[in-house]
Computed example of a mutant assay.
Amino acid sequence: MATEDRAVVEAVKASGKSTLKRAKAKANETIGQFFNVTLDIAVTGKTGSGKSSFVNSIRGLSDDDEGAAPTGVIEITTKPTKYVHPTMPNVKIWDLPGIGSPNFRAKKYLKDVQFKIYDFFIILNSERFTENDIMLAKEIRKQKKHFYFVRSKIDIDISSEQRKARFNEQKVLDTIRDYCVRNLNELGNPEVFLISSVDWQKYDFEKLQNTLTDDLPDHKQSALLQAWPMCSAATLEKKIKLFKGLTWAASLASVGVAVIPIPGTSVACDAAIALVFLSRCYYAFGLDDRSLKRLSEKVNMSLLEYRAKSKFANAIQKKAVTTIHVGASVVTMSCCADLVSLLPGVGSGLAAGLSFASTQYLLREGVNELAKTAGEIRKLAGLDTIY
């Protein structure tokens, strides 16, 4: 069909390749990488700095959620502990032992925690950064990896300062930041990110995400962006851009499919690729039960009912969520029944083998509708929104 021809030409152009054959090969590589790329984040710092709470925050969990890293007033982590992201199984956050010992040796520490595993290090402190933090940063720098200084528990500092008559939040933040930077001047005044693990919407949580993303190789950026909690409208916009930019690859990869291994599956059929792609989108946009319940608690209003207005969210929530964990379990054609039925005039014919144009339509409509639903929910919650 002419429509299909135009769609294929458009996809070939998006791939940057000159022929359909080469475009398909590029699509298989791109979407396979999208599903399978790994990211290992190391979180370390002084005992009591809030490492475990920060690990939970990145994973979109509260400290008392099932599967959360245990927290406490004493050092709980005695060896590197891996926490798999609940919706992105190829993203792992490692809670490393504290570095507060007077006999701390950075080189030995990095050897003990298996330095080479991690893509980058986050060095946390809830007070001032110490000589141990500096020693560790220097050793990481020698090994040519990135490190980031994060000053945690800012919400507690602000709450304490609010009791004062002439309280000025920005002045307090500037004072804390300057104090931290002064202690790190021998490293060339590195940037310090001020964060609260209980409130992603405030302080430097989004700025930290942007910096991490910019420093990562291209193929790792998508993993971080999908896994990072929804801390602002700008974060949502970046996630939307990511998925829209990959619809051509998912569409081409799902037609006349070469084998695309997805974690937990031996082969992904055409409809399954579409399903896993839109399921990733659903979770990344914060439309899953856990994300919406947490947001509902924060703004003191029920938001789950608004998700029900999205046909795609309903289809994924009712079928996909009970059958897959974002690519971690076996995906079958039967999971796609509700998604397939959304396409006018296609019906069961699509289940037998999605045409490229139909697949591309399905993915574009799905991303657009899920994005619109996420934006409208943020608006209803009284948060900043791009809509």
Rank of each mutant, 00 (worst) to 15 (best):
S57H: 11
L39T: 09
V43D: 01
D63N: 15
A68G: 04
K46H: 09
I41V: 15
G45C: 07
K17Q: 14
G45D: 02
T38I: 07
N56A: 08
L61W: 05
K17L: 13
T71N: 03
G50P: 06
A69F: 07
P70T: 11
S62M: 09
P70D: 10
K17H: 07
S53R: 05
T47I: 08
I58R: 03
S57W: 06
S62P: 00
D65A: 11
F35M: 10
I58K: 01
K24C: 05
K46P: 00
D65W: 00
K26V: 12
V43T: 04
A69N: 04
F34R: 00
S49R: 01
L61C: 01
D40N: 15
A23S: 12
S52L: 08
K24A: 01
K17E: 15
T47S: 14
S62A: 15
D40C: 09
S53N: 06
A68T: 03
S53Y: 01
N36C: 13
K46Q: 13
G45P: 05
D40E: 12
G48Q: 10
A27C: 10
G48T: 11
F35T: 06
L39N: 07
D40V: 02
G72N: 07
A27Q: 07
E66R: 13
F34I: 05
D64G: 00
K21S: 15
S62W: 03
T47L: 06
V55D: 03
A68Y: 02
K51C: 05
V55S: 03
I31C: 08
T44M: 09
D64F: 12
F34L: 08
D63Y: 00
L20A: 10
S52I: 07
T44Q: 05
S62E: 14
S18D: 13
S52D: 11
P70G: 03
E29K: 13
S18G: 04
G16N: 06
T38R: 15
L61S: 01
A69Y: 06
I41Q: 02
S52W: 11
S52F: 10
A42I: 08
G32V: 10
E75T: 14
N56S: 08
T71V: 15
T47A: 14
V37D: 14
G48M: 11
F34V: 02
V55K: 07
G60K: 01
V73L: 12
V55H: 02
L39W: 06
D63W: 00
T38D: 10
V43S: 01
T19I: 09
L61D: 01
I31M: 06
T19E: 02
G60C: 06
T71H: 04
D64R: 13
G50T: 10
Q33T: 14
K17D: 13
R59P: 03
P70A: 08
T38Q: 13
I41R: 09
K51A: 05
F54W: 02
K21F: 04
G67T: 04
K24N: 05
G50W: 06
N28Y: 12
G16Y: 01
E66H: 10
I41T: 04
A25V: 11
N36I: 02
K21R: 11
F54G: 09
E75M: 09
L20E: 12
A68C: 05
N28I: 04
G67M: 02
V37A: 14
V37F: 03
R59M: 14
S52K: 01
S57M: 13
K51I: 08
I31R: 00
F54P: 10
E29M: 11
K26R: 14
R22E: 15
I41W: 09
